[in-house]
Amino acid sequence: MAISKINPQHTVPTIDDNGFHLWESRAIMIYLQNQYGKNDSLYPRDPKKRAVVDQRLYFDLGTLYARFADYYYPVIFAGASYDPAKLEKINEAMDIFESLLANSPYAAGDHLTLADLSLVASISTWEIMGYDLSPYKNIRSWYAKVKQTAPGYEEANGKNVLLFKQLVDELLANKK
């Protein structure tokens, strides 16, 4: 089936839940939690706690993921060369994330939430693209913790990051 039939924006991920069509990965995570979650720990009902999770999700989409995509995608998909100014914007976003983790073992407090799942998909992708995480102590220990505590991490993300890397290597090899 053509994805544009159910999602005019034709992006993945898109879900079809018995005829209910939804896209935007973070909106999907929230929907699955609200509709099927057994308790609210991944996405607390308390508005103040929830707002922190939301803030991290928007930070991932609008800042962290966005700046990495802006640096890597033109190189991977359009044969551009790396732009150091864009790398500087990434480093700035990473500094912010590092500071958010200073007093907080997980992205939005003391336990795993949807924010961690979204952010770990970003960080693991850029790590495999060769971004150096070593200056970011808090991010490194957060990353190790999320890999261990996110249920099904390897199956849902770890393996696929490797596939992404293979795809990128093929694309870059074809350009040469």
């Binding site: 909106a27 999907i28 929230i30 929907y31 989409l61 609008g62």
Partner: peptide
């Protein structure tokens, strides 16, 4: 959850695409 999800999708569209 469904009504809210559509609103969230639009909010993420603003944050990640339009703006």
């Amino acid at each position: 959850p469904k009504e809210r999800a559509v609103i969230d999708q639009r909010l993420y569209f603003d944050c990640g695409t339009l703006h």
